[in-house]
Design a protein around this nucleic acid. Structure first.
Lengths: 340, 340
DNA sequence: CTGTTAGCGCATTCAT
DNA sequence: ATGAATGCGCTAACAG
């Protein structure tokens, strides 16, 4: 708390009786410096509590050692996990992460890109907004630092991206329900404009058709009320009675779970349930919920790695990584209860 | 992506046919600049896509417009929410937030304080580590920027802090269970070294004694296994059979829930359950779980506000804010089921 | 191996 | 109302 003036590189040089270059070298690894000098300078730095001023280094046109991250929200476990792994990887590379939350809004994300420009971050990891407006894409194009998109690809093909293989995941999930003998499988989703949702829906529909079954889906499920009023009629239909639900994102899974139980039907006996995205208490609900799990850490790590490769002067090539998912089979899909 | 050299203030000045001072003035609000000049300069800035270089401003000894946040983890909803509100408030003040995760480790947190010093953040919001070692406190003392502690007070009394009133919250919770006629109330907690846990335990014990009841507690519940093996024997005791549990943190609540149900007892009929800290699916579990809710947003907002007040040149006084909590009464405590 | 020096982009006196 | 000149702390030539 004591507002003491910080010591600078020059102070250190003076105290240690060396030139500024030497001190600079010590800061940056101590190469080409005599061991004795090195030790002396280091001692002085410690004594003075010297901390290099990143602003000055940045001004020299060097790196700011700063990465920017834009996610739609921190309250969503998935994105919080992305932020978590991103910050860990960033730190490991001796960088620091600036966090901006976009609320999934393109205009806000444009403003945030500006902020990052202003702060001269060395690279950017972003979850593109739901609607990638032309203005947004223009802003992206003007960026002068490497950028990697995560979770959803950027419409600008020149940007690298790391996403889960949503399509294959949905295929596997649907296939699994079919193998449990389910025939009237309903697909429950959120915003149909969203890339991930579209891909998942596509996978579901293809597998249904390939098995001679009729795909049925309902989108825009995003609240308890709306789940009840929209889902309930569908689930109550007599003919072609729905015997399974494939929910396209974690909240939809929970809403479906709630709605089904509230109408007095059994999971999985009456209605099997398989969700997309794992969530905290998936194994605490009764029955436990089977889900498609996205390897968030892998996604995040791969994305940050892409960024650092670029920063390390690697190729300028664009990568579009698709990461595989896995099925976590618990009880709700109809799989046997795991032994205690 | 196009690596174009960014235009600088000088470029703008040249293009606009004015001096650098004028441009600087425009950037900083445009006072004392003729309307016509102002418009012209602004136009040039837009055309060139000019973005002031924060590094340069910082170097001038001014602000970096950057705040630092240290939290133990992003995977904990509580801390994720702190980060969320912190970043929102920070942005609103035209600042930016750098996020560091400490894993609740003092040494790591010391290192992170250094990183923040190096990046010259203007202020710091931190969740102090579980164990505030002497070294850690020394590092804090050496800081030259305002710092506010959140969730747990800092042992250094010169630092401001914003915490929930854990003690009162625990009193109210315990009292509530007693009012439901419960007499053998067990308190289930985590790390007994933790400030929040200690305060909550203290509140619980006092109310128990004040009502002529015997407090009983078990700490270190932090995994499903350990919950089962430690909790089960206690809950199975015949005499003085436990008829309620007050769980001191969200995970403990879930572990208790799971353990009780697994042993075939009913909540709340056999064992009432009241938890500390709300969690995502608290109202989706059967029965729904009653909890003490901490107003995270209020906590975070108050803390950031304290920081900005200081930065605005406000008083240097130290504040120790205690924020009140509320009881969210659902079914697990014995309250009547809410009507659908 | 080591020291001297010239900017990086900006805010700021101090003039005008 | 505006401009010229200075320096913030550091790195990178360039000399020794």
């Amino acid at each position: 708390m004591a507002r003491a003036k910080r010591s600078t590189l020059v102070d250190v040089a003076r105290e240690a009786g060396v030139g500024t270059t030497t001190v600079s070298r010590v800061i940056n690894g101590g190469h080409y410096v005599e061991a004795k000098t090195l030790a002396r300078v280091r001692a002085v730095m410690t004594r003075l509590g010297y901390q290099p001023n990143q602003a000055a280094r940045a001004l020299k046109g060097e790196r700011t050692n700063t990465l920017g991250l834009i996610i739609p929200s921190l309250k969503d476990v998935f994105f919080a996990s992305v932020a978590d792994i991103a910050q860990k990887m960033t730190r490991k590379n001796n960088y620091v992460l600036i966090l901006l939350v976009s609320d999934d809004d393109a205009d806000q994300e444009i403003a945030e890109l500006d902020v990052f420009q202003s702060h001269r971050v060395d690279g950017l990891l972003i979850v593109p907004p739901r609607k990638q407006t032309r203005e947004f894409l223009a802003s992206v194009k003007k960026l002068s630092v490497p950028l990697v998109a995560i979770d959803r690809p950027l419409l600008d093909p020149r940007a690298s991206s790391v996403v889960a293989n949503n399509y294959e995941a949905a295929r596997a999930a649907t296939q699994h329900l079919i193998e449990h003998g389910r025939k009237n499988i309903l697909c429950v989703g959120g915003d149909p404009e969203l890339y991930t949702i579209k891909e998942r829906l596509r996978g579901y529909e293809e597998v249904m058709r390939a098995n001679g079954l009729t795909p049925r889906s309902i989108m825009h499920i995003n609240s308890t009320e709306n789940a009840k009023s929209n889902l309930l009629p569908l689930l109550s239909e007599r003919k072609g009675r729905i015997d399974a639900v494939f929910a396209l994102y974690n909240i939809a899974t929970v809403f479906t779970y709630e709605t089904v139980l509230n109408m007095g039907r059994q999971i999985p006996d009456d209605v099997a349930l398989l969700g997309f995205d794992d969530f905290d208490l998936s194994s605490k609900l009764r029955p436990t919920i089977s889900v498609v799990r996205q390897p968030v850490d892998e996604l995040g790590a791969a994305a940050i790695q892409l960024l650092f490769n670029r920063l390390a002067g690697g190729t300028d090539a664009t990568f579009h990584l698709q990461i595989g998912t896995s099925l976590v089979l618990r009880e709700s899909c109809g799989c046997p209860k795991a032994p205690l």
